[in-house]
Amino acid sequence: MENKNFYKEYIAPVVVLVAICLIVSTALAVTYAKANPIIVKNAKAAADQTRQELLPSANGFTEYKGKLDVLEENKVFVDDAYTANNGVGTVVTVETNSFGGLLTMMVGVDQQGAITGVKVTNHSDTPGLGTKNWNSNNMVTTYKGITKLNSTNVKDGQVKYVSGASVTGEALHKGVYLALEQVKDMGGAK
């Protein structure tokens, strides 16, 4: 009788919980195996489309295999860089530390080293607050045409409309700064 109570009291809850966890984990593994290839394919297609949007005259891109810049370890760093096959410019993908964690952005730079566009492709920031920085035209288009940022400090007043009041604005500014540095290190846009 005591053994039965002991089983009911201590063993059964553990066994049931572990069994449910194992079944759920298996179901997740199966779904992941099916969905992940499609997710990776979608992400690659979306990245290619964004590169084309940032450099519309490019006729394809080749990945840069050299050294990628890091501004702050694990916080602000270049993820990849692609040069246009016809030499019209470079698109740099930067990961930058924002309010909700790492924010992924792409920066297009043309032959003259001027920014052609900035686009945020992934983020975990509060929608409607920090995201105003890239939903509002002024914020992102304000970087267009700039060839050099004086510093990583967004409050130095070089860029109009970006005040640095939100963490996202600061993160975007650092990302753009690092992208320009990367293009410079690659020998300038070709």
Partner: peptide, 10 residues
């Protein structure tokens, strides 16, 4: 998580 992965994929 299953719904999230399906939405992300499709």
């Amino acid at each position: 998580t299953v719904v999230q992965m399906i939405m992300q994929a499709y």
